[in-house]
């Protein structure tokens, strides 16, 4: 047993669980999760994964903390305004659990760096806020064969699914290409309930933990749709799509590329303003 006395105490409530135990906790400590985006979805995921003792957590985000973020991005606080999000977030995670090794990437995930970064992780949490990034994460996970949790939120609605690339239905099996620019409103146009990010981000963290522990049933081949107003969860069954451009029988996407027309939440800046990866 390599758990220290302090770790035994810290993780005692995990260890008590028959499905986890000391061995499971060691698996978590050996696990490596990458969170793309330190925003609304990434915040709760990062905090819980750090608290859970996931041994290595990577966090990639190119943005700085903005006042409008604080309504839902709970890993950041008022004194952090203007700080790079990666720096702000890793500070909190370190305070929660110094056991965790943190890798901050204060940059945007692109076709150029995605494969290199993803290779170091066991599981990816997609906490991005725009379609271009979501497709990039899906594609990069396909090519690096990294399982990932996809999620998206808008107004009072959230959706999430877990993908084991080449094995279960992927993001592109369901949504083959990003919608045309303007077809779907962004968070900053349409608004989003802050706590919705918390609920869905926590589901993503749950999936990562279950994956690392190899327990339970992952949210694969189904899309979980959540409506906060009606307080209803719905499971939409999915199947792998033979025509999927990524993992189908005759894929058209054979290398990683940035999607051209990213649609983002933030309308504040004009032109190429889509560096931000938050929800």
């Amino acid at each position: 047993m390599s758990l220290t006395e302090e770790q035994i105490e810290r993780y005692s409530r995990h260890i008590i669980l028959p499905e986890v135990g000391g061995k499971g906790q060691e698996k978590l400590l050996a696990g490596k999760v990458l969170i793309v985006g330190a925003g609304g979805l990434g915040s709760p995921a990062a905090l819980y994964l750090a608290a859970a003792g996931v041994g290595t957590i990577g966090l990639i985000d190119a943005d700085a903390v903005d006042l409008s973020n604080l309504q839902r991005q709970i890993i950041h606080a008022t004194p952090d305004l203007g700080r790079p999000k990666v720096e702000s977030a890793t500070g909190k995670m370190r305070a929660i659990n110094p056991d965790v090794a943190l890798n901050g990437y204060p940059e945007r995930l692109t076709a150029a760096n995605a494969l290199t970064i993803l290779k170091d992780y066991d599981f990816v949490i997609d906490g991005t806020d725009n379609f271009a990034s979501k497709f990039l994460v899906a594609d990069a996970c396909h090519f690096t064969r990294r399982p990932y949790s996809h999620a998206g939120i808008l107004r009072f609605d959230g959706q999430t699914m877990t993908v084991i690339p080449r094995k279960t239905a992927c993001y592109r099996c369901v949504f083959s290409t990003p919608p045309p620019a303007g077809a779907v409103p962004s968070c900053s146009q349409a608004g989003v309930l802050g706590v919705l990010a918390g609920v869905v981000g926590c589901i993503q963290a749950t999936e990562a933990i279950k994956f690392l522990l190899s327990i339970g049933d992952l949210l694969t081949n189904r899309l979980l749709v959540y409506n906060a107003l009606k307080m209803k969860f719905r499971d939409v069954p999915l199947r792998r799509n033979r025509q999927c451009p990524l993992c189908g029988e005759h894929p058209s996407i054979i290398e990683l590329r940035d999607e051209e027309a990213p649609v983002a939440c933030d309308l504040r800046a004009g032109g190429r303003h889509t560096d931000r990866q938050e929800s």
């Binding site: 050996a30 696990g31 066991d122 990294r146 399982p147 084991i164 080449r166 094995k167 522990l213 190899s214």
Partner: peptide, 15 residues
């Protein structure tokens, strides 16, 4: 971690 991945492989995660 490697063992966890191998279990994943058995469960169908080919990568």
């Amino acid at each position: 971690g490697l063992l966890a991945r191998a279990r994943g492989y058995i469960e169908g995660w080919s990568a």
